[in-house]
Amino acid sequence: MTTTSPEIRSSATGAPRAPRPDRGEGVRGGLLTVLTWVIAIAFFFPVAWMAVTAFKQEAQAASSPPTWFFTPTLDQFRAVIDGGAGVYFANSLIATGFSTVLVIALAVPASYALAIRPVKKTQDVLFFFMSTKMLPVVAVIVPIYVIAGRLHVLDTIWTLVVLYTAMNLPIAVWMMRSFFQEIPGEVLEAASMDGAGLMRTLRAVLIPMVAPGLAATALICVIFAWNEFFFALNLTAARAATVPIFITSTMTSEGLFLARLSAASLLASLPVLIAGWVAQKQLVRGLSMGAIK
């Protein structure tokens, strides 16, 4: 008595036939793809609408129903630049750049100590770092304002540098610790056997290995500092105001200049978009190392 093989074989070649795709699985995959595109378009639509509105005249931007066909113009961008946007952009660049450098310089040794050479009650130390992010900023703005006033540092860009550094340091330490934990212990043992000291190991071995994570951390700090509004609104005036403060200038007693607001917002978004595009390779590698769980 012969037994039938469970494999389905082709009558011509005798080779196993490829299994037929599950019809239900194909339908579910198609629906998932459509849903993904719908969600992506829903999130991207406001950004696209802002970009389109930036090239309209004010009357066209405020029209109801919306004006779909129009002649693009750069008038709103000229108005933004002529309105003194350069000073605000310079202040944002200084505050964001210096605070990000300080955050990375402080976060690297701190995260190294917590990951490679952990101290007792490391989790308590991490909780201390992250607990500062749980405090609402509105609860500390009054004492910060009083202290800044007594030190005569109100409306100075360096006050924002210090605050942005303190604001981003906890998240940077938390992220960088995760990146350092991904390094195999054998690498540190090999560096030690070669006679490398702590600083040389950190500079020549560890930093190159966590460079993608470093880029991801720096970019997140840049985004947080560049978009920060509350401290800049309450602690600056004419000399140290940043880009988010400039954007609010499009809302006047005469009304909301929607096209100019869109142009200012588009210009404000470009530096972060360019930074993300330049560092996209390192950013993807960094985020895949396990920092974002």
Rank of each mutant, 00 (worst) to 15 (best):
T217K: 06
V27M: 12
R285P: 02
P208Q: 12
T156I: 10
A172K: 07
F127V: 14
I157Q: 05
F231W: 09
F230P: 06
T96S: 04
A166G: 13
L32N: 14
G97R: 00
M251S: 14
G97W: 00
R23P: 00
V108C: 00
R9H: 11
A59F: 02
V108W: 00
F179H: 07
K56H: 02
E254N: 11
A59H: 01
Y145D: 06
M193P: 02
E7Q: 12
A196I: 03
V146P: 03
L135K: 06
L267E: 10
F229K: 06
I94N: 04
M176A: 13
W277M: 11
L106N: 02
I41E: 15
T96V: 01
W49V: 09
F246Y: 15
F43I: 13
P118G: 07
L93G: 09
V272H: 01
A90E: 03
I94S: 04
T100K: 02
G195D: 03
S64L: 11
Q60S: 07
T3I: 07
G185C: 10
S269H: 04
A90P: 00
V210G: 00
R117K: 09
A85S: 15
R203S: 11
A110R: 09
A95V: 15
S5Q: 15
I116A: 09
Q181S: 08
A139F: 04
